[in-house]
């Protein structure tokens, strides 16, 4: 896609503070029990320290979204302008096919509306010249929205623990460095 925007997750800058995840809830007053963005702790020998490195994850706004392909109502579309994958609520009948088919577990079922919902890249905020709520609130600049075509130094598509698929998730990552650690003599 020519105009694909993408979340760039700089795991090295990220302090795992969950600000992005809560900023998302704040922006849309998301129902308790549902999170459109969440953090995943990095569990990999490349960063052997528990709960101290994270991937901030929401919708990956894939090149070939499995959710859209699975939706029997064709309620999920991809915007030309920025590649955001959006659920059209007028068409969603709550069949949950997107939920079962998304390999990243992104769409969530809202019991109250009996429909699916997820991150839509805050496209309306973007259209109004603002950053997505998560990006604006990130206190360390670890989460940014970039043009996928723009090469970021050290960017990887499938870091350890992030599922490898062929549907073209747009999220990119930069891995965390480990500090030199001096433990106590004991």
């Amino acid at each position: 896609m020519k105009n694909q925007k993408a979340f760039f997750v700089d795991v090295n800058r990220c302090v795992g503070c969950y600000t992005c995840a809560m900023a998302c809830k704040n922006t849309y007053q998301v129902e308790p029990g549902i999170a459109w963005r969440n953090l995943q702790s990095v569990e990999d020998p490349s960063f052997p320290h528990r709960d101290l490195a994270f991937y901030s994850l929401a919708c990956n706004h894939c090149e070939k979204p499995a959710c859209a392909a699975a939706c029997p109502e064709k309620a999920i579309y991809k915007r030309e302008k920025d590649g955001a994958v959006v659920i059209d609520i007028d068409k969603c009948t709550g069949e949950k096919k997107c939920i079962t088919e998304c390999p990243y577990g992104v769409p969530k079922f809202n019991q109250k509306t009996a429909q699916a919902e997820k991150c839509h890249m805050c496209y309306a905020r973007q259209d109004a010249g603002k950053q997505p709520g998560c990006v604006q609130s990130c206190p360390t600049g670890a989460l940014t929205l970039v043009n996928l075509a723009e090469k970021k130094e050290g960017a990887v598509s499938f870091p350890p623990g992030f599922k490898k698929t062929d549907i073209g998730p747009s999220t990119r990552f930069r891995l965390a460095k480990v500090p030199r650690i001096v433990r106590r003599n004991s």
């Binding site: 600000t19 995840a21 809560m22 704040n26 609130s137 206190p139």
Partner: peptide, 11 residues
């Protein structure tokens, strides 16, 4: 930007 706590204020 706020923090995880500040972003929960409406709630």
């Amino acid at each position: 930007g706020l923090c995880v706590k500040g972003n929960s204020y409406a709630r």
